[in-house]
Amino acid sequence: MDRWQGMQVFVRVAESGGFAGAARALNMSPPAVTRAVAALEARIGARLLIRTTRRVALTEAGARYLEDCRRILAEIEEAEATAAGAMATPTGTLTVTAPVQFGRLYVLPVIGEYLDRHPAVAARALFLDRVIDLVEEGADVALRIGDLPDSGLSAIRVGGVRSVVCAAPVYLERHGTPREPGDLSHHTIIGRSDRATVAEWRFGPDRRRAVAVRPRLVCNTIDGALAAALDGRGIVRLLSYQVAPALAEGRLVRLFEAQEGPPMPVHVVSPEGRRAPAKVRAFVELAVERLRADPRVNPQAG
């Protein structure tokens, strides 16, 4: 087995957390995988993995070598893809992940336009209200809301969204309109959580003012909390993009707008940046253009 293949095996073992998983993924026998890693360690002269009965873990040298292997293998794949034309023409399957409602409202239309433009590409929409590891889940592009941790991912900011307190006009007619956040203690609150506990809503440009609220109704989904608010069941706090259609239609009224906290950034994230294949670069360019032009995602566009 040559050095390039040995690197592939090592990377797969590290990502799978074991020799058996790597063997299945590579269609090799576990002994062959073990021999390949041992040969690589012998060639390098350093131990890369710590073996236990259940899984393997990277040594310090192994962690550094894993990063180098990923970079080298990516460069080899890029060279091969360039020769085959994949870097020039979008082909293959593109996987895009985003929060559920954001994906449905704002990302799905972009995917539809992208597919119209590039008939040689198929798309997979992975809409989840949790952050996933792009490499482990096999995703090409992610839409992320909130501050990003330091990582090797390429990120382009396309806008920002705020936490918005709102209620239906029928609720405000029945119970009055709160004038400032402290008035919330006298109103019915709809909680957006899976735990029926006291919630703390923060206000102001520095988010230092904390107001404790006791939800009377708690919904574990955004759609549930939004539906309850539209039905006049109470005051809810959701992200601005989640309530934008209802606010535009007058079905909800925005409260305390002057006391809202700073916006949370929205980024288009991909793991390969400029070295990404054409299918990824084409989607990122389109998504950035469309989302930056949407005032519901990027208020400055309005």
Rank of each mutant, 00 (worst) to 15 (best):
M1P: 04
W4H: 11
M7E: 14
M7C: 10
F10R: 04
V13P: 00
E15N: 15
G17I: 06
L26Q: 14
N27I: 14
A36E: 06
A39N: 14
L48M: 00
R54C: 02
V56Q: 08
L58N: 00
T59K: 06
G62H: 05
G62M: 07
A63V: 05
E67I: 13
I72C: 12
L73D: 02
E80H: 14
A81H: 13
T93G: 04
L94K: 01
T97P: 06
A98E: 07
A98D: 07
R104H: 06
Y106V: 02
L108P: 09
G112P: 09
E113G: 02
D116T: 15
D116N: 13
A123S: 03
R124T: 11
A125V: 08
L126K: 11
L126Q: 13
L126Y: 14
D129Q: 10
L134P: 03
L134C: 02
L134K: 03
V135Q: 12
G138Y: 07
D140W: 03
R144E: 12
G146T: 02
D150M: 10
G152M: 11
G160Y: 02
G160K: 02
V161W: 01
A167G: 05
V170Y: 10
R174L: 14
R179I: 10
E180D: 14
E180M: 14
P181Y: 04
D183E: 08
S185N: 13
H186L: 14
G191L: 07
R192P: 04
T197C: 10
V198Q: 09
E200N: 15
E200M: 15
W201V: 05
F203S: 11
G204W: 06
R207P: 03
R208T: 13
R209W: 13
A212S: 06
A212Y: 06
R214W: 08
P215C: 03
P215Y: 02
T221A: 05
I222R: 05
D223L: 11
D223T: 12
G224I: 02
A227Y: 08
D231K: 01
D231H: 00
D231F: 01
G232S: 09
G232M: 08
G234K: 11
G234M: 12
L238N: 00
S240F: 01
S240R: 01
Y241H: 04
A246F: 08
A248R: 04
A248I: 00
V253P: 03
R254H: 04
F256S: 05
F256A: 04
F256Q: 05
Q259R: 15
E260S: 12
P262H: 02
H267A: 09
V268K: 07
V268Q: 10
V269Q: 02
S270C: 12
R274Q: 15
R274N: 15
R275V: 12
P277Y: 01
R281C: 07
A282R: 09
V284I: 09
V284Y: 05
A287N: 00
E289G: 11
R290C: 00
R292V: 00
D294G: 08
P295H: 05
G302A: 15
